[in-house]
Design a protein around this nucleic acid. Structure first.
Length: 220
DNA sequence: ATATCGATTATCT
DNA sequence: GATAATCGATATG
């Protein structure tokens, strides 16, 4: 068994307890972790930008109006994928948080591609000419879903703590440092809440404006 | 560099 | 019928 490709460390899945916490806590803790697709060509990418949504008490959250056919996964057990379709064009990926009955979640906003770059480029319909093109693969909630082939039919409700079954989240020993906080992007309610988290060191892969006006460095 | 705008459809009022 | 947790293209400085 030769360790052929890049000598990437072993990736261990996150357990249910990891997600059974407040969305703010899970959001921070997810930075630096790895999203893995393993039901086809293997894809891995590091989580570098996320947003927390706080459930029924959060006016900007899909769960604000209670449980519906679309968002029911949010009210289920933690660690499951909530995938929704938006603007007639894009899918977005979230992971449910908190105990069953509470609807908090974390939105995946940007990743740093690690493995399977050509597959991601093909799925995104972009050409990889150099390092400058890498952010085009997974910088943005819609883009990362396209790169990973994430759709509602395929992935909504999937248990993200289970390796070998398609889509899951793991850790490879990377230690997140330099976490910044800012208001969330693209919402029209509760716009002031500082619930967007991203890694300064990975800013090239973070979506939107590089320097957010009210971003705060929390020096971790 | 930032600003504005159109695409396109599931979901909810 | 209106809206939306976006993206890519176009226009302008």
């Amino acid at each position: 068994m030769g360790k052929s490709q890049t000598s990437s460390p072993q990736i261990r899945p996150l357990d249910r307890a990891f997600f059974n916490r407040h969305p703010r806590t899970v959001a921070r803790a997810l930075l630096g972790k790895v999203l893995v697709r393993d039901d086809g060509p293997r894809l891995t990418a590091r989580i570098v930008e996320v947003e927390a949504y706080l459930g029924i008490e959060d006016a900007a959250a899909h769960a604000a109006a209670g449980s519906t056919a679309r968002n029911s996964v949010l009210f289920g057990p933690p660690g499951h994928a909530y995938v929704y379709f938006i603007y007639g064009n894009h899918y977005c990926l979230n992971v449910s948080c908190e105990p069953e009955g509470r609807a908090g979640c974390v939105l995946f906003r940007a990743l740093e591609p690690i493995f399977g770059l050509e597959e991601m480029a093909h799925a995104r319909g972009v050409e990889l000419r150099g390092p400058k093109d890498l952010p085009k693969l997974t910088s943005g909630p819609g883009r990362l879903c396209a790169a990973f082939g994430i759709t509602r039919v395929r992935d909504n409700g999937h248990d993200l703590t289970q390796p070998g079954s398609g889509l899951w989240i793991g850790e490879d020993g990377y230690r997140a440092r330099g976490i910044q906080v800012s208001p969330r992007i693209g919402i029209t309610k509760a716009v002031e809440q500082p619930l967007r988290y991203f890694l300064t060191a990975k800013s090239a892969f973070v979506s939107g404006r590089k320097r957010f006006p009210s971003a705060v460095d929390t020096r971790v």
